[in-house]
Each structure stands twice: as structure tokens, then as C-alpha cells.
Design a protein around this nucleic acid. Structure first.
Lengths: 225, 225
DNA sequence: CTACTATACGGAGGCACCCTCCGCTTTGCA
DNA sequence: TGCAAAGCGGAGGGTGCCTCCGTATAGTAG
């Protein structure tokens, strides 16, 4: 994560805002629809996005605790009052960031479904997932702590991830590039394990990448070649 | 946990103070000796004990986070400055409470070794352990987070627990009251699981007790009777 | 294009917490 | 009994949380 936040560097179009009237070309399952609401004013939406971006960046840098909401507001160049209007509690900000990240992964998966090499696509998605995990790690810990695993948000996020990954995986398998006996849930768990393991060598992303490489090797069908 | 703190209700003699010159009748392995230091003045020691007791009580009530150090000082009827002198960081207070609890369990085990029924003794110790867990839970989470599982304190605590439990278990096994194939480490893990599970029905101790009962049933040799 | 109002902005301010610093008190020894 | 050394404790500066309300602005109706 270099600066502004978001999943990779996409910027612009990404997936944000909680309840934007008629976004444009929906098509994704979306966590969004759960919280339908009147459309936001343009400035409100701008600030909302800024806050999410700032929060994502800071969480990735230093974890979800040890960050003052006021710092996030400062980084987003927004008044503290604005932050509290959009996110009445610390938790709601956490949830929003989490959902935003998951939606980013969903969009990425959709895009990668038309990529040239299904296997490379799968690998890229997994890398993004692990990368995302760097934020998610402390984030989900904090979340789970707060909402006591009842929240519908968390489970619907898991479903979205499983679906996204499932599509990529199936395509790679149909192309004969990945073993048939691998399941999406397994892969998700493995990615999760990687996230945790990467935490050990905190900060050193290369470790996670190396492990991911090993994982991909293991997935290969290795038919001819 | 009713009021003042400590493991059960023993009060007085328990195990506290970090580096008390010549306490009296040592005999326990002790986490203590690690941090040798000049003896404390009487008032210092008194305040130290009060702080530990107050902290233990509050942690048991509300967990290790969400507690201001100032409240602990107030409860101990001690100035905030005194708290900070004894425990320069939040972590050091956490560690001290933890060690104190473990030492309490160690003493309890020693006492129970001469109890009439080895099996009842084992059960009682396990109950105390789970009870203690109510503090330990959030406490050890906070600790592990802070000191990143390197700390020698944590592992020596685990060793003490294993040894204490081991002695009780062995006695119960020799008396033929508990199955031979149970190991101390297993029991410790089970107790830990109980602690976590009890967290689900937070606050309701009876649940934990019920589960403990089931566990003890499972341990029984069930030879005759 | 102008006027108007619902919506949103933003920061001052009240409260709690963290931690430090230092003048005052107590202890324990000679 | 006297006197350091050790300990006490709270005022105070810094920061974070969250609320409240006067001001600014987007979007709409005329």
C-alpha cells in the first residue's frame, strides 16, 4: 500500500460510498444493498470516500488500534465532526473499510475473469487477498471483538469472497491449469493462514509472497510442460 | 470473584510482592526469583499488594482493556503516581497480575496435594483454573499482543501451571481415580478451551462449571462403582 | 439566474485518560 | 531521637473521544 489506500492503486472508480442512488453499471452481488438509503449529496459522498481511503491507508500502516479517529479525519482533510456524522462509532468505520476492501476484491475478481491466463489471474487475486489481509488482520480482530461474530456483515463478506474466488478457481480448473480437487473454501483458508503467518514476519511482504508462490506451485496440474 | 481479588478468597498470606527479601516459607518454584532486587520498604510493599488486588478485581469484572489505570489507583486507594512507580507501563501491571494469579494456582496445588480425595482435589484445582481464566482471558490476550509471545514470563508461567497440575493429576491417577492415559498438557488445553467457551456465555459462570463437571466425568476411571 | 432550504461541514469545548515531575511524608537505621 | 533515603500522591500538560451548533453549500423550484 503506497499512499491513498484502496486495494491496489486503482483510485478513481473503485467501489465506495454506502448508498449511492443509481451507481451506474452495477452487476456485482454487493454488500451494499443491505443498507439502502436516500442518495448522498455530492460533497457528502466525496468526504465519505476520503475518509475510507484515509482509514484504509492508516490501518494498513499501523493496524486498526493505535489510530486516533482524529488523525484519520486530519489525513482525510475533513473535520472531526464529519467523520463522526458518517461513522457514529469506531466500529462503523471499521466495518465500512472492511466492506470496501471486500468489494474491491469482488471487482478485481470480475475483471480477472476475462484475463488471458486463468492461473495467473487466480494467483493475482490471491496476492491481492493476502495484501488486503494486512489491513484485514488487525481489522477483523477488532471487529470480531466488537460485534461478537453475530454480525451479518461478516458472513456476507465471507460469502462474497468465496464466490469471487470460486469463479476464478473454476475457470483455472476448466482450463486445466489447476488441480481439480481444490476447493474455494480450502483456498480461502489457506490465504487466511498465510495472512496470519505473514504477521509473524510483520512488515516483510516478501515472505508472504514467497509462501504464496509455493502455494501456487502446489496447485498446478503439472500435466505436460 | 466477589470483591478484593486474589484467586479465591484467601486474602492475607497469598502470593504477591515482586521481590520481598526473605518472605518466610518459600518452597514454591516461583516466578519471582527472575527479578531479584533490593527489598521494599513496608509501605511500598503494602501499596504494591493493594494495586495488584485492585487490578485483579477490576480485570475480572470488566476485562483487561476498558479499564483506566486511574480507576485502579483509586480503587486501591493509592495515588496515580504510586501506581506508575510500581508499574511503569500498563503491560508491567498486566504481567504482575498474571504472575500473581499463576502463583496462587501453584500454592493451591501444593495445598491440595494433601487433600483427602485426589480426584476432588484435581476437580477443585481445575475449577480454580477456569475461574482464574476469567481474568486471564482478556489479560493474556492483551499480554500476548504486547510482548509478542517472546517473553520468558509467559512460558515460565505455563511451565508452573503444567507442573502444578501434573502433580495433582499424577496423584489422582495413582489413586486409581482418573484414567491413566490423560496428560497434564491435555488437561491444560481443555481448561483453556473451557475458558474460551465460557466467554461465549459471558458472565454466566454456571455454564463453565457444568462443562467442567462433564469433563471430570470423562476423566473418571469408572472401574467399579 | 436567483432564492431558498434541507443537508452537510467543521471545530470549539467538555470530559476522561495517559503519564511526568516534584514538593511533602514516612520509614528504618544509627 | 534525628535524619537521609525511599516512597507518596496529585497537579498539570498532552492527547483522544464525542457532542453540539453556527456556518456554508448543493440541489431545486420558480
Amino acid at each position: 500500500m503506497t499512499g491513498t489506500g484502496r486495494l491496489t492503486q486503482s483510485e478513481g472508480s473503485g467501489g465506495s460510498s454506502p448508498r449511492a442512488g443509481t451507481p451506474a453499471g452495477s452487476g456485482v452481488t454487493s454488500l451494499r444493498n443491505i443498507t439502502a438509503a436516500p442518495p448522498m449529496r455530492a460533497d457528502a459522498r466525496r468526504n465519505y470516500d476520503r475518509l475510507i481511503a484515509a482509514a484504509t491507508a492508516v490501518f494498513a500502516e499501523r493496524g486498526a488500534d493505535d489510530v486516533s479517529l482524529e488523525e484519520i479525519a486530519r489525513r482525510a482533510e475533513v473535520g472531526i465532526g464529519t467523520l463522526y456524522r458518517h461513522f457514529p462509532s469506531r466500529q462503523s468505520l471499521l466495518e465500512a473499510v472492511y466492506a470496501d476492501q471486500v468489494e474491491g476484491l469482488e471487482l478485481l475478481a470480475a475483471k480477472l475473469l476475462t484475463a488471458e491466463s486463468p492461473k495467473a489471474a487466480l494467483a493475482e487475486w490471491l496476492r491481492a487477498m493476502v495484501q488486503f489481509g494486512r489491513t484485514k488482520r488487525s481489522l477483523s480482530a477488532a471487529l470480531v471483538e466488537m460485534i461478537g461474530k453475530e454480525s451479518e456483515l461478516l458472513s456476507s463478506c465471507a460469502a462474497v469472497l468465496r464466490t469471487s474466488l470460486g469463479a476464478l478457481l473454476e475457470r483455472a480448473q476448466q482450463a486445466g491449469e489447476v488441480r481439480q480437487d481444490v476447493q474455494a473454501a480450502d483456498l480461502l483458508r489457506l490465504a487466511h493462514a498465510l495472512i496470519l503467518a505473514a504477521d509473524w514476519y510483520a512488515g516483510d511482504t516478501s515472505q508472504a509472497d514467497r509462501m504464496l508462490g509455493l502455494l501456487m506451485d502446489g496447485l498446478t496440474t503439472r500435466p505436460a510442460d
